[in-house]
């Protein structure tokens, strides 16, 4: 159960996120924000599907091969001799740090999205603001659940507890629900309103 403090915390967080990312989206323009959107999707796919653990396995395999190669002085015959030791090499990313690594990778991919966008010409636009808000919501919804609600933060390698994750997700969900109720609209009418605004912007953007 959530108390009213949690709900308001969710609402304030949501509004702050949407406001901040909406402003950034307006300034950066649609094209740049769309790249960030794609980066968030890629980051989340890596983090939430089997792709992430598979990537960790590959990185550990390359790391083991590199260690063997270094030990053999990068001489192929010696490398073959030492091939049996490959199983004894400590993995670069141990299983207890896998989640932390994938989380950092997720952050890096998002950062890359923002970075790459700098090289693309894009002008300030209201559609950019909408895209920025969507990105803000996604980043908030994906990042907040893994942040602890109280300090101290997790120790390195320690995983976020399921309870914390569920609690944070619930705060976001309740916050969004409350926003909908405050606006006094059903989702379908909110969607229609959004589409109507987008159409008006589309007409405005003609030049």
């Amino acid at each position: 159960m959530q108390n009213s403090g949690d709900v308001w915390q969710g609402i304030v967080t949501l509004f702050a996120l949407l406001l901040l990312f909406g402003y950034l989206g307006w300034r950066r323009g649609f094209a740049r924000e769309f790249i960030v959107f794609v980066a968030i999707l890629i980051g989340q796919i890596i983090r939430a599907t089997d792709l992430g653990p598979q990537l960790v396995v590959k990185i550990n395999q390359f790391w083991a091969l590199f260690k063997i190669a270094a030990k053999a002085g990068f001489s192929p015959p010696k490398m073959l001799e030492l091939a049996g030791e490959i199983a004894t090499i400590e993995p670069l990313i141990p299983p207890d740090r896998q989640e932390a690594f994938l989380f950092l990778l997720f952050l890096f991919v998002i950062f890359l999205g923002y970075f790459v966008g700098q090289f693309i010409s894009s002008r300030p636009s209201p559609v950019g603001m909408i895209m920025g808000m969507i990105n803000g919501y996604l980043i908030g919804a994906l990042l907040l659940p893994v942040l602890p609600r109280e300090l101290p933060a997790h120790l390195p390698g320690q995983t976020a507890s399921v309870a914390q994750r569920q609690q944070a997700q619930e705060v976001m969900r309740r916050g969004l629900q409350q926003v909908g109720e405050i606006l006094g609209v059903q989702p379908v009418y909110a969607l229609l309103l959004l589409i109507a605004l987008l159409l008006l912007w589309a007409a405005w953007e003609l030049r």
Binding site: F30, A31, I195, L198, L199, A202, A203, E205, L206, R207
Partner: peptide
């Protein structure tokens, strides 16, 4: 038709798809 031409790039494509869907 509305006067003017659609913006180029992703923004224009986005609007084209949106209006087509509507």
């Amino acid at each position: 038709s509305f006067p003017g031409s659609p913006p180029r790039g992703i923004e224009g494509t986005f609007f084209n798809v949106l209006v087509g869907l509507v």
